[in-house]
Nucleic acid binder design. Structure first.
Lengths: 172, 172
DNA sequence: CTTATTACGTCAGGCTTGTTGACTTTCCAA
DNA sequence: TTGGAAAGTCAACAAGCCTGACGTAATAAG
Protein backbone atom coordinates (compact mmCIF):
# COMPACT_ATOMS: atom_id res chain seq x y z
CA UNK A 1 0.00 0.00 0.00
CA UNK A 2 2.70 2.48 0.98
CA UNK A 3 4.70 2.69 -2.20
CA UNK A 4 7.84 4.20 -0.70
CA UNK A 5 10.80 5.59 -2.55
CA UNK A 6 13.42 2.96 -3.17
CA UNK A 7 10.99 0.18 -3.97
CA UNK A 8 11.45 -0.91 -7.54
CA UNK A 9 8.91 0.52 -9.97
CA UNK A 10 6.33 -1.87 -11.38
CA UNK A 11 7.23 -1.35 -15.00
CA UNK A 12 10.62 -0.72 -16.50
CA UNK A 13 10.12 3.06 -16.55
CA UNK A 14 11.04 5.61 -13.95
CA UNK A 15 7.85 5.95 -11.94
CA UNK A 16 9.20 8.00 -9.06
CA UNK A 17 6.53 10.61 -9.73
CA UNK A 18 3.92 8.05 -8.72
CA UNK A 19 5.13 7.44 -5.18
CA UNK A 20 2.65 8.06 -2.39
CA UNK A 21 4.74 10.98 -1.20
CA UNK A 22 4.66 12.61 -4.61
CA UNK A 23 0.92 12.05 -4.81
CA UNK A 24 0.52 13.60 -1.38
CA UNK A 25 2.47 16.64 -2.47
CA UNK A 26 0.19 16.96 -5.46
CA UNK A 27 -2.87 16.75 -3.24
CA UNK A 28 -1.51 19.44 -0.96
CA UNK A 29 -0.54 21.62 -3.91
CA UNK A 30 -4.12 21.41 -5.15
CA UNK A 31 -5.42 22.42 -1.74
CA UNK A 32 -3.16 25.43 -1.37
CA UNK A 33 -3.41 26.54 -4.98
CA UNK A 34 -7.18 26.37 -5.00
CA UNK A 35 -7.34 28.48 -1.88
CA UNK A 36 -5.10 31.10 -3.46
CA UNK A 37 -7.07 30.83 -6.68
CA UNK A 38 -10.36 31.77 -5.00
CA UNK A 39 -8.93 34.36 -2.63
CA UNK A 40 -8.97 37.36 -4.99
CA UNK A 41 -12.66 37.18 -5.97
CA UNK A 42 -13.56 36.35 -2.36
CA UNK A 43 -12.08 39.66 -1.22
CA UNK A 44 -14.22 41.63 -3.66
CA UNK A 45 -17.34 39.59 -2.95
CA UNK A 46 -16.98 40.01 0.79
CA UNK A 47 -17.59 43.76 0.45
CA UNK A 48 -20.91 43.19 -1.26
CA UNK A 49 -23.54 40.78 0.02
CA UNK A 50 -22.33 38.13 -2.39
CA UNK A 51 -20.38 34.90 -2.09
CA UNK A 52 -18.58 32.39 -4.24
CA UNK A 53 -21.87 30.96 -5.47
CA UNK A 54 -22.78 34.30 -7.03
CA UNK A 55 -19.44 34.44 -8.78
CA UNK A 56 -19.89 30.99 -10.27
CA UNK A 57 -23.35 31.85 -11.55
CA UNK A 58 -22.08 35.09 -13.11
CA UNK A 59 -19.17 33.25 -14.70
CA UNK A 60 -21.24 30.66 -16.53
CA UNK A 61 -24.00 33.08 -17.54
CA UNK A 62 -21.31 35.34 -18.96
CA UNK A 63 -19.73 32.45 -20.77
CA UNK A 64 -22.90 31.17 -22.34
CA UNK A 65 -25.46 33.98 -22.53
CA UNK A 66 -29.00 32.66 -22.73
CA UNK A 67 -28.34 29.35 -21.05
CA UNK A 68 -31.28 27.85 -19.17
CA UNK A 69 -31.60 27.42 -15.43
CA UNK A 70 -31.43 23.67 -15.84
CA UNK A 71 -28.22 23.90 -17.85
CA UNK A 72 -26.69 26.12 -15.18
CA UNK A 73 -27.90 23.72 -12.50
CA UNK A 74 -26.19 20.91 -14.33
CA UNK A 75 -22.86 22.63 -14.73
CA UNK A 76 -22.77 23.90 -11.14
CA UNK A 77 -23.86 20.59 -9.64
CA UNK A 78 -26.16 22.03 -6.96
CA UNK A 79 -29.86 21.79 -6.26
CA UNK A 80 -32.27 24.21 -7.85
CA UNK A 81 -33.33 25.47 -4.43
CA UNK A 82 -29.78 26.43 -3.67
CA UNK A 83 -29.21 28.06 -7.04
CA UNK A 84 -32.56 29.78 -6.95
CA UNK A 85 -31.69 31.74 -3.86
CA UNK A 86 -28.50 33.01 -5.46
CA UNK A 87 -30.15 33.67 -8.80
CA UNK A 88 -33.05 35.56 -7.23
CA UNK A 89 -30.77 38.04 -5.50
CA UNK A 90 -28.81 38.53 -8.71
CA UNK A 91 -32.01 39.23 -10.65
CA UNK A 92 -33.38 41.50 -7.89
CA UNK A 93 -30.13 43.45 -7.82
CA UNK A 94 -30.24 43.86 -11.59
CA UNK A 95 -27.13 41.84 -12.44
CA UNK A 96 -28.88 39.00 -14.22
CA UNK A 97 -31.87 39.12 -16.54
CA UNK A 98 -34.19 36.14 -16.81
CA UNK A 99 -36.10 36.00 -20.10
CA UNK A 100 -38.81 33.54 -20.99
CA UNK A 101 -37.61 31.00 -23.52
CA UNK A 102 -38.63 31.45 -27.16
CA UNK A 103 -38.54 27.84 -28.27
CA UNK A 104 -39.89 26.56 -24.94
CA UNK A 105 -41.66 29.14 -22.86
CA UNK A 106 -41.18 27.18 -19.64
CA UNK A 107 -37.48 27.77 -19.81
CA UNK A 108 -35.82 30.83 -18.40
CA UNK A 109 -32.90 32.12 -20.45
CA UNK A 110 -30.30 33.88 -18.38
CA UNK A 111 -28.33 36.96 -19.45
CA UNK A 112 -26.02 39.38 -17.71
CA UNK A 113 -27.04 43.02 -17.59
CA UNK A 114 -24.47 45.75 -18.08
CA UNK A 115 -24.08 45.89 -14.31
CA UNK A 116 -23.70 42.11 -14.12
CA UNK A 117 -21.12 42.12 -16.87
CA UNK A 118 -19.16 44.79 -15.04
CA UNK A 119 -18.99 42.75 -11.84
CA UNK A 120 -18.15 39.56 -13.70
CA UNK A 121 -15.33 41.35 -15.48
CA UNK A 122 -14.02 42.76 -12.24
CA UNK A 123 -14.09 39.39 -10.51
CA UNK A 124 -12.63 37.35 -13.34
CA UNK A 125 -9.93 39.87 -14.10
CA UNK A 126 -8.33 39.34 -10.69
CA UNK A 127 -8.46 35.60 -11.24
CA UNK A 128 -7.10 35.84 -14.77
CA UNK A 129 -4.31 38.09 -13.56
CA UNK A 130 -3.21 35.42 -11.10
CA UNK A 131 -3.52 32.73 -13.74
CA UNK A 132 -1.67 34.81 -16.29
CA UNK A 133 1.18 35.43 -13.91
CA UNK A 134 1.38 31.74 -13.02
CA UNK A 135 1.26 30.69 -16.67
CA UNK A 136 3.92 33.20 -17.63
CA UNK A 137 6.18 32.10 -14.80
CA UNK A 138 5.79 28.43 -15.62
CA UNK A 139 5.89 28.60 -19.39
CA UNK A 140 3.85 27.04 -22.20
CA UNK A 141 5.05 23.48 -21.71
CA UNK A 142 4.20 23.52 -18.01
CA UNK A 143 0.79 24.99 -18.83
CA UNK A 144 0.11 22.14 -21.24
CA UNK A 145 1.00 19.65 -18.52
CA UNK A 146 -1.11 21.51 -15.98
CA UNK A 147 -4.13 21.28 -18.25
CA UNK A 148 -3.46 17.62 -19.06
CA UNK A 149 -3.34 16.59 -15.42
CA UNK A 150 -6.42 18.62 -14.47
CA UNK A 151 -8.44 17.03 -17.25
CA UNK A 152 -7.20 13.58 -16.33
CA UNK A 153 -8.42 14.20 -12.78
CA UNK A 154 -12.00 14.81 -13.87
CA UNK A 155 -14.45 11.94 -14.07
CA UNK A 156 -16.21 11.15 -17.32
CA UNK A 157 -19.27 13.33 -16.82
CA UNK A 158 -17.32 16.29 -15.54
CA UNK A 159 -14.91 16.07 -18.45
CA UNK A 160 -17.83 15.91 -20.85
CA UNK A 161 -19.28 19.06 -19.27
CA UNK A 162 -15.93 20.77 -19.45
CA UNK A 163 -15.43 19.90 -23.10
CA UNK A 164 -19.01 20.83 -23.93
CA UNK A 165 -18.37 24.44 -22.97
CA UNK A 166 -17.55 26.41 -26.06
CA UNK A 167 -13.84 26.14 -26.56
CA UNK A 168 -13.02 29.36 -28.32
CA UNK A 169 -9.34 28.87 -28.93
CA UNK A 170 -8.06 25.59 -27.56
CA UNK A 171 -6.92 23.25 -30.35
CA UNK A 172 -6.10 20.39 -27.92
CA UNK B 1 -8.09 44.32 -22.00
CA UNK B 2 -9.55 41.51 -24.06
CA UNK B 3 -6.41 39.95 -25.49
CA UNK B 4 -8.09 38.05 -28.31
CA UNK B 5 -6.49 35.43 -30.49
CA UNK B 6 -4.96 36.97 -33.58
CA UNK B 7 -3.60 40.02 -31.82
CA UNK B 8 0.16 40.00 -32.00
CA UNK B 9 1.91 38.81 -28.82
CA UNK B 10 3.70 41.39 -26.75
CA UNK B 11 7.13 39.84 -27.01
CA UNK B 12 8.62 37.93 -29.88
CA UNK B 13 7.55 34.56 -28.46
CA UNK B 14 4.39 32.63 -29.08
CA UNK B 15 2.17 33.68 -26.18
CA UNK B 16 -1.06 32.15 -27.37
CA UNK B 17 -1.34 30.30 -24.06
CA UNK B 18 -1.79 33.66 -22.34
CA UNK B 19 -4.93 34.77 -24.17
CA UNK B 20 -7.95 35.55 -22.02
CA UNK B 21 -9.74 32.55 -23.46
CA UNK B 22 -6.92 30.22 -22.52
CA UNK B 23 -6.84 31.71 -19.03
CA UNK B 24 -10.60 31.21 -18.73
CA UNK B 25 -10.22 27.60 -19.73
CA UNK B 26 -7.60 27.19 -17.04
CA UNK B 27 -9.89 28.75 -14.47
CA UNK B 28 -12.72 26.44 -15.43
CA UNK B 29 -10.41 23.42 -15.43
CA UNK B 30 -9.43 24.30 -11.85
CA UNK B 31 -13.07 24.53 -10.84
CA UNK B 32 -14.08 21.21 -12.34
CA UNK B 33 -10.92 19.36 -11.34
CA UNK B 34 -11.12 20.54 -7.75
CA UNK B 35 -14.69 19.38 -7.52
CA UNK B 36 -13.74 15.95 -8.82
CA UNK B 37 -10.71 15.95 -6.54
CA UNK B 38 -12.81 16.37 -3.39
CA UNK B 39 -15.69 14.14 -4.46
CA UNK B 40 -14.22 10.80 -3.37
CA UNK B 41 -13.49 11.71 0.26
CA UNK B 42 -16.78 13.61 0.42
CA UNK B 43 -18.67 10.41 -0.34
CA UNK B 44 -17.01 8.56 2.52
CA UNK B 45 -17.33 11.47 4.93
CA UNK B 46 -21.02 11.90 4.17
CA UNK B 47 -21.76 8.50 5.70
CA UNK B 48 -20.20 9.51 8.99
CA UNK B 49 -20.98 12.79 10.70
CA UNK B 50 -17.85 14.32 9.25
CA UNK B 51 -17.11 16.89 6.57
CA UNK B 52 -14.25 18.22 4.53
CA UNK B 53 -12.95 20.15 7.50
CA UNK B 54 -12.40 16.92 9.42
CA UNK B 55 -10.52 15.46 6.49
CA UNK B 56 -8.19 18.44 6.30
CA UNK B 57 -7.45 18.25 10.01
CA UNK B 58 -6.73 14.52 9.79
CA UNK B 59 -4.49 15.07 6.78
CA UNK B 60 -2.21 17.58 8.40
CA UNK B 61 -2.08 15.85 11.78
CA UNK B 62 -1.12 12.68 9.97
CA UNK B 63 1.50 14.51 8.00
CA UNK B 64 3.12 16.20 10.97
CA UNK B 65 2.36 14.21 14.11
CA UNK B 66 2.63 16.34 17.24
CA UNK B 67 1.95 19.65 15.57
CA UNK B 68 0.32 22.27 17.76
CA UNK B 69 -3.17 23.69 17.45
CA UNK B 70 -1.75 27.05 16.40
CA UNK B 71 0.35 25.48 13.67
CA UNK B 72 -2.69 23.62 12.37
CA UNK B 73 -4.71 26.83 12.54
CA UNK B 74 -2.06 28.55 10.49
CA UNK B 75 -1.88 25.95 7.77
CA UNK B 76 -5.65 25.60 7.46
CA UNK B 77 -6.28 29.33 7.49
CA UNK B 78 -9.42 29.23 9.63
CA UNK B 79 -10.35 30.64 13.03
CA UNK B 80 -9.72 28.69 16.19
CA UNK B 81 -13.45 28.59 16.94
CA UNK B 82 -14.06 26.91 13.63
CA UNK B 83 -11.22 24.44 14.03
CA UNK B 84 -12.06 23.77 17.65
CA UNK B 85 -15.49 22.43 16.82
CA UNK B 86 -13.98 20.00 14.34
CA UNK B 87 -11.09 19.04 16.59
CA UNK B 88 -13.34 18.46 19.58
CA UNK B 89 -15.47 15.91 17.76
CA UNK B 90 -12.36 14.17 16.46
CA UNK B 91 -10.95 13.91 19.98
CA UNK B 92 -14.30 12.82 21.45
CA UNK B 93 -14.63 10.15 18.79
CA UNK B 94 -11.14 8.89 19.51
CA UNK B 95 -9.55 9.74 16.18
CA UNK B 96 -7.20 12.42 17.43
CA UNK B 97 -5.23 12.54 20.66
CA UNK B 98 -4.33 15.86 22.24
CA UNK B 99 -1.30 15.72 24.54
CA UNK B 100 0.04 18.53 26.68
CA UNK B 101 3.25 19.97 25.26
CA UNK B 102 6.53 18.98 26.85
CA UNK B 103 8.56 22.07 26.08
CA UNK B 104 5.61 24.40 26.64
CA UNK B 105 2.74 23.02 28.68
CA UNK B 106 0.26 25.53 27.19
CA UNK B 107 0.58 23.84 23.84
CA UNK B 108 -1.51 20.87 22.76
CA UNK B 109 0.30 18.42 20.55
CA UNK B 110 -1.96 16.57 18.15
CA UNK B 111 -1.61 12.93 17.14
CA UNK B 112 -3.74 10.45 15.25
CA UNK B 113 -4.91 7.37 17.11
CA UNK B 114 -4.99 4.01 15.35
CA UNK B 115 -8.61 4.68 14.47
CA UNK B 116 -7.77 8.15 13.18
CA UNK B 117 -4.94 6.78 11.09
CA UNK B 118 -7.27 4.21 9.59
CA UNK B 119 -9.79 6.83 8.48
CA UNK B 120 -7.07 9.13 7.18
CA UNK B 121 -5.66 6.28 5.14
CA UNK B 122 -9.06 5.37 3.78
CA UNK B 123 -9.81 8.96 2.79
CA UNK B 124 -6.45 9.77 1.30
CA UNK B 125 -6.22 6.51 -0.59
CA UNK B 126 -9.23 7.39 -2.72
CA UNK B 127 -7.71 10.77 -3.42
CA UNK B 128 -4.30 9.31 -4.19
CA UNK B 129 -5.88 6.77 -6.48
CA UNK B 130 -7.44 9.55 -8.53
CA UNK B 131 -4.20 11.50 -8.50
CA UNK B 132 -2.19 8.43 -9.43
CA UNK B 133 -4.44 7.66 -12.35
CA UNK B 134 -4.28 11.25 -13.57
CA UNK B 135 -0.50 11.37 -13.17
CA UNK B 136 -0.09 8.08 -14.99
CA UNK B 137 -2.34 9.18 -17.84
CA UNK B 138 -0.57 12.52 -18.23
CA UNK B 139 3.02 11.39 -17.76
CA UNK B 140 5.98 12.71 -15.76
CA UNK B 141 6.57 15.81 -17.83
CA UNK B 142 2.95 16.92 -17.54
CA UNK B 143 3.10 16.29 -13.79
CA UNK B 144 6.13 18.53 -13.49
CA UNK B 145 4.26 21.28 -15.34
CA UNK B 146 1.18 20.74 -13.21
CA UNK B 147 3.19 21.24 -10.06
CA UNK B 148 5.01 24.25 -11.47
CA UNK B 149 1.80 26.07 -12.35
CA UNK B 150 0.12 25.25 -9.04
CA UNK B 151 3.08 26.60 -7.10
CA UNK B 152 3.21 29.71 -9.27
CA UNK B 153 -0.45 30.32 -8.43
CA UNK B 154 0.18 30.48 -4.69
CA UNK B 155 0.95 33.76 -3.02
CA UNK B 156 4.15 34.19 -1.07
CA UNK B 157 2.87 33.12 2.34
CA UNK B 158 0.99 30.13 1.00
CA UNK B 159 4.02 28.99 -0.96
CA UNK B 160 6.15 29.34 2.14
CA UNK B 161 3.68 27.19 4.09
CA UNK B 162 3.63 24.64 1.31
CA UNK B 163 7.41 24.43 1.14
CA UNK B 164 7.69 24.34 4.91
CA UNK B 165 5.86 21.02 5.05
CA UNK B 166 8.38 18.23 5.16
CA UNK B 167 9.18 17.36 1.59
CA UNK B 168 10.00 13.68 1.83
CA UNK B 169 10.98 12.98 -1.72
CA UNK B 170 10.70 16.00 -3.96
CA UNK B 171 14.09 17.19 -5.21
CA UNK B 172 12.54 20.16 -7.06
C1' DC C 1 6.98 38.88 42.23
C1' DT C 2 3.89 41.26 39.44
C1' DT C 3 2.35 41.98 34.82
C1' DA C 4 1.85 41.11 30.05
C1' DT C 5 1.53 37.86 26.56
C1' DT C 6 0.68 33.50 24.47
C1' DA C 7 -1.94 29.17 23.70
C1' DC C 8 -6.00 27.15 24.09
C1' DG C 9 -10.90 26.44 24.86
C1' DT C 10 -15.69 27.96 24.92
C1' DC C 11 -20.21 30.48 24.77
C1' DA C 12 -23.16 33.21 21.83
C1' DG C 13 -24.83 34.72 17.53
C1' DG C 14 -24.73 35.37 12.56
C1' DC C 15 -23.89 34.34 7.53
C1' DT C 16 -23.48 31.59 3.17
C1' DT C 17 -24.19 27.64 0.86
C1' DG C 18 -25.60 23.44 0.59
C1' DT C 19 -29.31 19.69 1.54
C1' DT C 20 -34.65 17.21 1.52
C1' DG C 21 -39.31 17.30 1.00
C1' DA C 22 -43.68 19.02 -0.50
C1' DC C 23 -46.24 21.86 -3.41
C1' DT C 24 -47.85 24.99 -7.34
C1' DT C 25 -47.77 26.97 -11.86
C1' DT C 26 -46.71 26.85 -16.54
C1' DC C 27 -46.39 24.65 -20.66
C1' DC C 28 -45.18 21.09 -24.28
C1' DA C 29 -46.36 16.82 -26.45
C1' DA C 30 -48.52 12.45 -26.94
C1' DT D 1 -57.15 16.26 -22.83
C1' DT D 2 -53.99 14.58 -19.93
C1' DG D 3 -49.33 13.21 -18.40
C1' DG D 4 -45.04 14.83 -17.35
C1' DA D 5 -41.18 18.03 -17.70
C1' DA D 6 -39.44 22.71 -16.35
C1' DA D 7 -39.39 26.22 -13.22
C1' DG D 8 -40.17 28.39 -9.02
C1' DT D 9 -41.49 28.63 -3.94
C1' DC D 10 -41.84 27.63 1.10
C1' DA D 11 -40.06 25.41 5.14
C1' DA D 12 -36.67 23.26 7.87
C1' DC D 13 -32.17 21.86 8.63
C1' DA D 14 -26.88 21.20 8.78
C1' DA D 15 -22.00 22.12 7.75
C1' DG D 16 -18.68 25.26 8.09
C1' DC D 17 -17.16 29.50 8.09
C1' DC D 18 -17.07 34.15 10.71
C1' DT D 19 -16.71 37.92 14.83
C1' DG D 20 -16.73 39.15 19.58
C1' DA D 21 -16.18 38.32 24.34
C1' DC D 22 -14.53 35.79 28.11
C1' DG D 23 -11.80 32.47 31.00
C1' DT D 24 -7.78 29.64 32.24
C1' DA D 25 -3.29 28.15 32.38
C1' DA D 26 1.51 28.78 31.58
C1' DT D 27 5.34 31.26 29.96
C1' DA D 28 8.00 35.59 29.31
C1' DA D 29 9.17 40.20 30.55
C1' DG D 30 9.58 43.90 33.73
Amino acid sequence: MQNKVGIAPVSGENLLFLTDDQLRRGIEAMFFAYRAFTSDPDLILADMDYGRAHHRALHFVHREPGLTVTALLDVLGVTKQSLNRVLRTLVEDGLVESRVGLRDRRERLLFLTEKGSALERRLSETQRARMRSAYRAAGPQAVAGFRQVLEAMMDRDTLRQFKALKDLSDPT
